[in-house]
């Protein structure tokens, strides 16, 4: 059992490494374009909803705490607490996605979605700023997709926990899905300062 647990943990990390490189490519594109067009990238912060971005960061951190406590509840065989923590994690996940959806709607209304209807108040930066908004939607969109998949996995955990599948002797799926959830949290920890706060000092 102990060896199975370690193997599953190692296998999940192997998958997460491919995820690191996947997101790493987008962070690479971001790094190159930001170093090329620092002025245009700084000007976009004015159009970001920093309050909601920060609220979402705090929501996601809280969901990571409840996920960690869910794993701990399984370790100490507290079935009721395990379910409460999974439900709380799901709740924070949906709050995050709801806020994200509201922000996407704001960008739609303000014509900040890259494409033929993109409008930007600083004409010199219009083309370059569009690259940032393209990266914004690509990176937060991929992140949101991971959240949706995570919510599906948590629902699976909740159903299994009602069937009494987990105990202090066997909680590998809780631990593994926890690793995935924390990884998605880490991606957002980097996305928040890189997308929302680039030129915050200019608008303070």
């Amino acid at each position: 059992m102990e060896q199975q647990f370690s193997s599953a943990q190692l296998g999940m990390w192997a998958f997460l490494l491919t995820e690191i490189m996947f997101f790493g490519g987008m962070f690479g594109a971001y790094t190159v374009y930001r170093s090329m067009y620092p002025g245009a990238f700084q000007s976009t912060t004015h159009y970001m909803n920093v309050t909601l971005g920060m609220a979402n960061t705090l929501v996601l951190i809280a969901s990571s705490l409840t996920m960690a406590l869910a794993v701990r509840s399984a370790q100490v065989d507290n079935q009721k607490m395990l379910r409460i923590m999974i439900v709380l994690t799901l709740f924070f996940g949906f709050v995050f996605l709801g806020i994200k959806g509201y922000e996407y709607h704001e960008k739609w209304v303000e014509h900040l979605i890259p494409g033929p209807h993109f409008e930007y108040n600083v004409p010199n930066y219009a083309h370059q700023a569009q690259i940032l908004f393209f990266l914004y939607f690509a990176m937060t969109g991929t992140h949101a997709l991971h959240m949706v998949i995570g919510a599906g996995l948590l629902t699976y955990l909740l159903i299994k926990s009602y069937k009494g599948s987990f105990s202090s002797h066997y909680y590998t799926p809780v631990e593994i899905i926890g690793l995935y959830w924390h990884f998605v949290d880490i991606v957002w920890i980097f996305l928040f300062p890189l997308l929302y706060l680039i030129g915050a000092h200019l608008h303070a």
Partner: peptide, 18 residues
């Protein structure tokens, strides 16, 4: 850890304003 992460989130925002 959760408290530290939350405080660091506020810190990253405050530092970005300077």
């Amino acid at each position: 850890v959760w408290a530290a992460l939350s405080i660091l989130t506020m810190t990253t925002w405050q530092v970005a304003l300077i």
